[in-house]
Design a protein around this nucleic acid. Structure first.
Lengths: 352, 352
DNA sequence: TCTGGCACTCGACCGAGTGGAGCGCTGACG
DNA sequence: CGTCAGCGCTCCACTCGGTCGAGTGCCAGA
């Protein structure tokens, strides 16, 4: 595949690029004559045919039947997005549409919903956002509530606005007043620190037990660790799945069913997104590259988003492989940046 | 429509029933010859033709084109389900499948998810469950947490297991200790009563202010009312939408898009379900009867479910108009009963 | 190495023809 | 008056053959 790229001379690359662009635009197999006319090169259709035959040998394009034009293979798309594509800057209206969608003082959940909606509306495909990891947001407050025999509700207030409930099942039973004192202790020690730091501190304290800690403190630390320990639930917000019904290259009902089912289950979507969280740029999956066969004719464009320089999540869109990458890529890119800054701006914009 | 029923003699009704059953089974327009053979009546095809012509005049059946068999109209389906249908008892396997799906000590949310999943899996259509109104579940505990300037988090524990958070925005600021005292006051007065009763009591106390209440108590009552006041959010749980992609009578992509969109928005689904909550039996909407035109070729079968004799919600399925009503209706019916008793059994099953 | 030309292939489209299912109507029968 | 057999007609679904056009592969010549 790497070799394929090296072996391609400038003319072949131009032709391949023109062919794919044309196919993306029209959805029709493109033949030698049209390609010769539209490529801008002054070569004859016959010459183009020879080049096309070479490209077909390399597995970059193929004919759906003997005498039709050529369409790109997944490998062709791969080469295209990796080294032939010139991304457009997102149009000003699009940037404005995206930017105006972000409400600076919405809750995180709302922000996620808005973002995936935005992505799906602007691209007319399905948008998805991986929830941010909360590693470096500040714990404002922690409280415990006794529900029943050994069952405790832990309430974490994060960033002064986000609230998380967790039900803990314990062997020992605590009275409400004990719980209150433990919460006071934890709040005094931990409030304002990031969840990440809180967890580290609790674990450290559990390790080197000091003499000046009484049993209650120990229990408090233990309880705090349990409450904070469970990382945020893995989840992903999806929107605009129905846009995918409009693409006739995805018209196979059975495939479509599997695709929508995947959106419901979310598990496989999560898997795909998690593969992208390492990269620091826009990433693209084409067709079956992700190893899922219901993914035929689909592509994913993702970008990680970060707060204060640390990647905390991924967002992206999923649509037909035959999509306008030059338009979609910058949209996903800029949305990721804007989401990152919307998340990052909040603490300063809403001090205490 | 009523007249149509009265005017139909036994033979015509048998023929209509056989025709609709046959069409539901095969999806093919059914002609006079086959109908004469399968109806069990000993009449000739010609006679059947005469009857069919009458039925067509009444608007109960129609031909898709000049010389094809007849298919039922929505009015025909209506008559069919109202007075011709003989529902089968649900098959034992189906009852068992449904019954075994209910985990007696799952949370309400889980129960709703399970139920809609169950409905969709057993019927192979889309299942939906309207969340139960909480009017008569017991409030176990109420707590307040100060989030910031005038912003308070109210935590309601219901039935000793369900937890609800509500953020209240107030004009006046309260300290955490004030909040604690108010919560104590409310808990002492209200714990164990039903949400409905709690609300009534709070409203009553607000009306006839008594002298022996100090300002704090008043504030507490006000706060409690705010916290309990907002009824549970309207919501509905949907599952198995993707099953609908399999029915070729729903193959129109644009219609399908609208249908799935409706499931996402949930608003219209809610509207339909709310129309059914009054009835105490299985209800059926056929085609456009609900007034929504994307609903063509779809039908809804719903049944309310009740706890302790009071209807608290509705569940149902949505699928193609051409569905096996005789199978679906008892399934929906029995599921509603089982869900009701699963919800009702919990308080006795989990005392305290 | 490029190019024009030629033969060939294949799908899309059209129109005619055919078979079959099904209807409406009519006239006869009990 | 209800029932029924039969006839003629309509319309759909399918097939078949022919044509057209787009596109390919290959070859010979510049």
């Amino acid at each position: 595949m790497e070799n394929a790229f090296i072996n391609l001379d400038a003319r072949a690359r131009t032709l391949l690029r023109t062919l794919i662009e044309s196919y993306i635009r029209d959805g029709q197999p493109v033949g030698s004559r049209t390609l010769a006319r539209t490529s801008g090169l002054s070569v004859s259709a016959a010459t183009v045919r020879n080049v096309m035959a070479d490209l077909e040998d390399m597995g970059l394009i193929h004919s759906p039947h003997t005498s039709a034009g050529r369409i790109p293979t997944p490998a062709g798309y791969r080469l295209f997005v990796d080294s032939l594509l010139e991304v457009r800057n997102p149009s000003p209206e699009e940037v404005r549409a995206i930017q105006s969608g972000f409400d600076p003082n919405a809750s995180t959940q709302d922000l996620m919903d808005t973002t995936s909606n935005l992505l799906s509306r602007v691209t007319r495909m399905a948008g998805m956002v991986r929830l941010p990891r909360h590693r470096n947001v500040a714990l404002s407050q922690i409280e415990f509530l006794r529900l029943g025999e050994g069952r405790i509700l832990a309430i974490l207030v994060i960033d002064g606005k986000e609230v998380q409930n967790r039900v803990l099942e314990l062997e020992r039973d605590f009275g409400q007043d004990e719980l209150q004192r433990m919460a006071n202790y934890l709040n005094a020690h931990l409030a304002g620190k990031s969840l990440h730091a809180v967890r580290a501190e609790l674990l450290r304290e559990m390790r080197d037990v000091r003499d000046d800690l009484d049993a209650m403190m120990l229990a408090a630390i233990d309880l705090g660790e349990k409450a904070v320990g469970d990382e945020d639930p893995d989840d992903v917000v999806v929107a605009g799945q129905t846009h995918l019904l409009g693409y006739e290259e995805l018209a196979d009902m059975e495939r479509l069913r599997q695709l929508l089912e995947a959106f419901n289950e979310k598990q496989e979507i999560l898997g795909i997104l998690d593969q992208c969280i390492r990269s620091d740029r826009v990433q693209i999956f084409i067709g079956r590259e992700s190893g899922l066969d219901w993914f035929e004719n689909c592509s994913v464009v993702t970008a990680p988003y970060s707060v204060d320089g640390e990647v905390v999540g991924v967002l992206g869109v999923i649509g037909p492989t035959r999509m306008s990458y030059d338009r979609v890529i910058p949209i996903v890119d800029v949305t990721a940046r804007l989401l990152g800054s919307a998340l990052g701006d909040q603490p300063p914009g809403d001090p205490k």
